[in-house]
């Protein structure tokens, strides 16, 4: 299971952030807050799930 640990950790963080989003929306309608959290979530997905840094890897490394 070792290879999958990061992925599962990130999913947990994403889940927590989603719940936080939901509760923030109950108290405030702030576009900025919610979009910031969304950007953070998107950043996590892009970095850890989509491996954006492989773009800069000269070798076909995984």
């Amino acid at each position: 299971m070792g290879h999958y640990r990061t992925g599962i950790l990130i999913v947990l963080v994403l889940a927590v952030l989603t719940v936080v989003e939901f509760y923030i929306a109950l108290v405030t309608h702030s576009v900025v807050f919610l979009m910031l959290i969304a950007a953070l979530k998107a950043g996590l997905v892009i970095w850890f799930f989509m491996h954006v840094k492989r773009l800069w890897a000269a070798e076909g490394g995984h």
Binding site: H29, A42, I46
Partner: peptide, 27 residues
């Protein structure tokens, strides 16, 4: 496999923005 995976994650990223825009923001 990698391409379909990052494509799938991308679809998720889109929803990450759509979800608050549709369900949460605004009165």
């Amino acid at each position: 496999v990698e391409a379909s995976a990052i494509y799938w994650h991308y679809v998720d990223v889109v929803w990450i923005f759509f979800y608050p825009a549709l369900y949460l923001i605004g009165s």
